[in-house]
Design a protein around this nucleic acid. Sequence first.
DNA 1: CTGAAAGCGCTAACAT
DNA 2: ATGTTAGCGCTTTCAG
Lengths: 340, 340
Amino acid sequence: MKKLSIIDIANHLNVSKTTISFILNGRAEEKRIGKELVERVQKFVEEVGYKPNSLAKSLRTGKSNIIGLMVEDISNPFFSAIARLIEDRAYKNGYKIIYCSTDNDTLKTRELINMFRDRHVDGYIIAPPQGIEDDINSLLKDGMPVVLFDRHLPNVNADFVEIDNLFSTYNATKHLIQQGYKNIAFITFASGQTQMQARLQGYHEALNESGYKPVVQEIIFNQNEDLIIAPITNFLKKNKKLDAVFFGTNHVGTCGLKVINGLGIKVPSDLAVVSFDDYDVFKLFSPPVTAIAQPIEAIADSVITVLLNKLNTSSQHISSQSIILKTDFNIRESSKTATS
Amino acid sequence: MKKLSIIDIANHLNVSKTTISFILNGRAEEKRIGKELVERVQKFVEEVGYKPNSLAKSLRTGKSNIIGLMVEDISNPFFSAIARLIEDRAYKNGYKIIYCSTDNDTLKTRELINMFRDRHVDGYIIAPPQGIEDDINSLLKDGMPVVLFDRHLPNVNADFVEIDNLFSTYNATKHLIQQGYKNIAFITFASGQTQMQARLQGYHEALNESGYKPVVQEIIFNQNEDLIIAPITNFLKKNKKLDAVFFGTNHVGTCGLKVINGLGIKVPSDLAVVSFDDYDVFKLFSPPVTAIAQPIEAIADSVITVLLNKLNTSSQHISSQSIILKTDFNIRESSKTATS
DNA sequence: CTGAAAGCGCTAACAT
DNA sequence: ATGTTAGCGCTTTCAG
């Protein structure tokens, strides 16, 4: 049973392949093709399980029905959860997903974008690393639908969906202050990305209002967890007068908890804890960790809606939209008042 | 700057496109094409950034350089971790990954396989649901490279890589028994998949040896966590005389811990805990949870190695290989002796 | 209403 | 050593 092509079925039915093509693409009415012929063709196609070769179709039409998804790291629960939701929606709309992890590496990302481009993906969903501005702009210039998420690029006029990072950390820091904590550290990955900068700024603003001194520890990102745990350990050992710590991402937060356990620090009596992102680890830690929960579903939904929208309307609306979503602040035991 | 094709560059250089094609595909030597010409072409190609249209190439050659990856759920840390590692290796070898989550849904998986097939993926990596045997066999019959992982299909003669599930649970159950626990429950997803059956069997065998009575609770899988938590809660409430519980997967384990926290059960004094899979949640729980760690890297490595091997050698070795990997058993506080 | 034919960009026999 | 040419399977003018 070799794969049969449109011409095989055309021959079988003594019709031209053009007609078959029209029928299969739902243009029978438009082309005024006889009802009975249409039915006969559809029945036969069904019967032999003929599927058009999508490669040939793509080559001809220039459309691939593939969406390129570039996340920072698919094994990070934030990104894998989003990927999952995007995947569902995309498949439901007839799109497949090709994905890759950028590791926030500009060169790698550039190569990957070229690969995607080469593969004629119809649209791009990207959590962009810095330095990739020109490549994105070039995509945009060529009319490719692009949606950025989790962060944006200051000099790129692409649609993006983000959360309100600044307010989220501002608010959470305020909470710590209200609980009576005065020496609040912020531990995060060293990054100039918009979302990380905004988080840092929210922390600073809240502290400024109260006149407390900020203590920031930036960690160099590394796949190897030991290289994240080590600097956090050093930091906590050296700053004994801290009474609270704010972790800037789920990854830092998880590593931070390991350090806290390793050092035998009591939470919240020795040290209060708050973390960005909210996953099982934080909920199940003892005591449960106060965390900022990103609205995963809403993010994924917005991203795919915006993209599908651009995909379906070839309208070249110059205006680009940015969607900013709210987070939930889940207060738990780890940040209970210091003075009780 | 419109995309230029091989013919554009052929014209520009006053050479035939065949020659260009040969040069670009590294067959210059073989075809005895002049060194200087080769260099001239390469320089020009580099200069204008020409990239062959891989769609056309695929249509012509029948190869897409895409690997289809089907996991159960990309947002499950086990699968996302594996996906990440496979992705890296694949990209390094010039392959891209198209992925999807099957949800263990046979119909969905069937559609997905057809999609992949339609897209002419070069190879398949699949964590197969039950009922998909015929589809896989059909793939195999058509000479498609297929590697199964995490589980296998009894009536399918495909390569697969798995872990030693039976021994892993046998061993862990033995450990509980040695620690003095006598009423050990096994909570797992209801599933006839080979890996789940093997895990269950390992548990039973260990119990049999000691003459203890097995208590098994099977949960219907559901994306909605509440529907997993509820039956576990009921089960634990109704079986007060249990002194240990064994969770059959990371997902069940995580939900189980939530139940344990919710019910205020003390671990291990009220109830000892062991779980399959080993992630941060288990390490950071108080007390840390004894867990069976799957060798993620080794699994991913084996899978991709086997697949790349099949991809590169068109040899139709009938013999299929099955790789069984060992797990690590990480004993922690949650299963400390009952009689101390 | 239907069919012939021209490509989409590339590869690889088959000339030359 | 290099060029000619025939497709891969499909869509889509343009003629009947």
